[in-house]
Amino acid sequence: MSMPFYVSPEQLMKDRADFARKGIARGRSVIAIQYADGILFVSENPSQALHKVSEIYDRIAFAAVGRYNEFENLRIAGVRLADMRGYAYDRRDVTGRGLANAYAQTLGTIFSSGGEKPYEVEIFVAEVGDTPESDQLYRLTYDGQVADEHGYAVMGGAADVVAGHLAEHYVAGASLADALRVAVAALGHSESEDRVIPAGDLEVAALDRTRSQPRKFLRLREARLTEILGGRGSEQADAPAPEDALAGSGPRHSGQDDPADPTDQVSGATPPLEDPVTGEPPVAPPATPPASEPPVAPPPPQPGQPGAPGQPTAPGTPPPPTEPGQV
């Protein structure tokens, strides 16, 4: 007879928040920064196709960090909501605030519903106005909280360090080029070094109120970025991050359990429920561990460290299979 464990609501919410925060912290940062003619988004993203910053509507843009499939889902929902509202009413009736509210309700509901995994995302919703004072920048977290940001905002992995650098160097009302330089320097800044991010690895987009078309969103391509940023010293690409989808990298068969990789086929210290070939349950472990070796609790998995050494096998459990399919 088994009794369900009691988990306090505080603990439950804390666990879910920790889970979401861990997922977000694995990604690289995105900066939204206000400049004289609008709002600029800068992120380090080696992929040319999988965007973190996108257009939602005439004056509204969307930026996100975290799990790609989840924020892509939110982005498409936002485009549909905005286009439907603009079609049913008028283009001017689509507002960033309305969109931010819809996202907040959605994220909040998913976070607090027991049956769903919380979204591991954080998003910016920005709307450019006719004057810098009427620009709006909302930051939404995984649990549906909305913050109204001014000047600049950072989300993602090293958000604190990047925001610290921006706090020192941000100037209100800067030109596009100046704002871009400050943001790129902040993204390359870490406690140990100041890295020059290659222009080809930057994803930069802006909501520019001076654009003559009704659609104010534009992407700044590599050629334009090189022109603005100019000579910055030798460029240094970032080390591969878990969020980079490397071509051809399927599930890893390292023989070791990597807690950060849900696609690995090894379960580390956890014995398989049954023999994968015969379907027989495994031989029951000895009732008492050998006296010479006291049981050692495995160290907690280190998040954000792909390829961390496998956990030591707890005594009394069968060794993990070295290769899937081998018994």
């Binding site: 498409i76 549909r80 309700q105 509901t109």
Partner: peptide, 10 residues
């Protein structure tokens, strides 16, 4: 539960 975006949006 009613306040989130309908499933068809997602």
């Amino acid at each position: 539960g009613d306040s989130r975006l309908p499933a068809s949006f997602m």
